[in-house]
């Protein structure tokens, strides 16, 4: 038996919107730790890892570890039927081939349940070791989204370079080139608007902008984004989900042949 009650139901709606274009089908894993997902896109270039810790739920009952295969497009269709202020409860019985999403309006005057069919998915779980990164950039998530969107109108790839000068995002395309440099900026009053660059050594890596733009669909989940870079490692783009966990996107770099 599984019953997870999330008062801030809009978080789950936002999570789905940020992953459904990257991954079609995925297993949601439920354990004492929390509600999690790890899935790769079909070309094995990008991976999403989600964790919503059990403590973040108002009620969290998971009698035994359960993996539920869901079509994310269908799940998104159902969650779109929940109001932004609704409380969402996820329910499943052991051995059942369905999951139920229950939506309660804040005033309890409307209660809806949507039952969705589960599916068997051959999951390819990857072991992601802890790594030391050459550089970690934290910046406003909206600023990062804006940069990715702007650069994708010029080129297909972005070179992210971190030096002691700052972090540079560069692209080139048929019509020309673009470079955007963000310098460390901790002087602003609001910490979520600051840009913080931790650099152990300079690093420069190339990534497909198509994926970066897809990751930025998680922007509504967090004011800040953290970009961790190391040469010859996938970049990690992380959005912290307040008091609950995170959504992390891993993207393999492009290399010169």
């Amino acid at each position: 038996m599984l019953e997870l009650r999330l008062v801030q139901g809009s978080l789950l709606k936002k999570v789905l919107e940020s992953v459904k274009d990257l991954v079609t089908d995925a297993n949601f894993d439920c354990s004492a730790t929390g509600f999690s997902l790890q899935a790769m896109d079909s070309s094995h270039v990008a991976l999403v890892a989600l964790l919503l810790r059990s403590e973040g739920f108002e009620h969290y009952r998971c009698d035994r570890n359960l993996s539920m295969g869901m079509n994310l497009n269908n799940m998104s269709k159902m969650l779109k039927c929940a109001g932004n202020d609704d409380i969402i409860t996820i329910k499943a019985d052991d051995g059942s081939d369905t999951v139920t999403f229950m939506f309660e309006s804040p005033t309890q005057d409307k209660i809806a349940d949507f039952e969705m069919k589960l599916m068997d998915i051959d999951s390819e779980h990857l072991g992601i070791p802890e790594a030391e990164y050459h550089a970690i950039v934290r910046m406003p998530s909206a600023e990062f989204a804006r940069i990715c969107k702007d650069l994708s109108s010029i080129g297909d790839t972005v070179v992210i370079s971190v030096t002691k000068e700052g972090v540079k995002f560069s692209t080139r395309g048929d019509i020309g080139t673009a470079n955007i440099v963000c310098r460390q900026n901790t002087s602003v009053d609001k910490p979520e608007e600051s840009t913080i660059i931790e650099m152990n050594e300079p690093v420069s890596l190339t990534f497909a902008l198509r994926y970066m733009n897809s990751f930025t669909k998680a922007t509504p989940l967090a004011n800040s984004v953290t970009i961790s870079l190391s040469s010859e490692l996938p970049v990690v783009v992380e959005y912290k989900i307040a008091e609950m966990g995170y959504i992390r996107f891993y993207l393999a770099p492009k290399i010169e042949d």
């Binding site: 270039v45 990008a46 991976l47 770099p253 492009k254 010169e256 042949d257």
Partner: peptide, 14 residues
């Protein structure tokens, strides 16, 4: 010419 690396060349299946 640039080549897209796969995640599978960095991480192992568990």
């Amino acid at each position: 010419m640039q080549r897209q690396k796969s995640l599978l060349s960095f991480f192992e299946k568990s």
